[in-house]
Amino acid sequence: MVGRIHVVTDSGSDLPAELRQSLGIHVVPLTVQFGDEIFKDGVEISTPEFYTRLRGGSSMPSTCQPSPADFVEVYERIAEPGDTIVSIHLSSKMSGTYQSAVLASTMIDPKITVKAVDSRAASLGIGVQAVRAAQVVQAGGSVDDVLDVVQSTIDCLQVYFVVDTLEYLQKNGRIGLASALVGTLLNIKPVLTLVDGQVAPFEKIRGKAKAMKRLRELSAEFRERYPERQLKAAISHADSYAEASALAELLPEMAGVDSDVILGEIGPTIGVHTGPGTIALFLYGV
């Protein structure tokens, strides 16, 4: 008989717990380190606890990718010989998580197949890939069907995010090509994007309200780029629920996206790098 297909991602995917559980998506946590204290994301530290510490903390936290052994443990727990695991992870340009998954795939029972995927994204950019993969699995699709859907999502995924400050991206070395934006004296809300799996500057905007307006315009522009597709969106936020949900409500009407906008919270893994106040928008067509 044909083995089952399992979908695995990491804590950088920011999927809301209910959605994850309803689709049977497994999550391997990264660890977050505040000084000498180390926490497994979502296991040993919750998102609200994390932001309280981040805002009040004196030291800048950092993250650490899961070890191959962490992956082996999860893979062998969920799969049986003959099964296939589609394991979708943080962009390899920003994290070694994908590398750990690839290594782990060579360390487990050879009868379990692991298809590790470099999402070239972060946060719900990975999340939506995992969701679509799980939906294909639920609909009875083959491994190839799952991988095709994931690839097509990667190919059309457009990410825009607004940070309150570039300080966090800079201090953690994830600023990529946006380093030129550092050091401005004005209250500029940079709109950033991901290019080739790493952070790149997109625009400089004065003020958060204008930046949010710009995200709506960009959604409408994306709509025009893929007129033949059904447009989907996901929004994640770092301790900024009000702005994120306002955007989620406006998008279907203003930009013609489906009304089932996934709204998620940016957890510790990503939050360490973006800082509080970040709003991220993920657009893709199906």
Binding site: L186, K204, I205
Partner: peptide, 10 residues
């Protein structure tokens, strides 16, 4: 001038 610089992309 400041507003124009917002759109400068090196």
């Amino acid at each position: 001038g400041i507003s124009a610089l917002m759109y400068f992309v090196a």
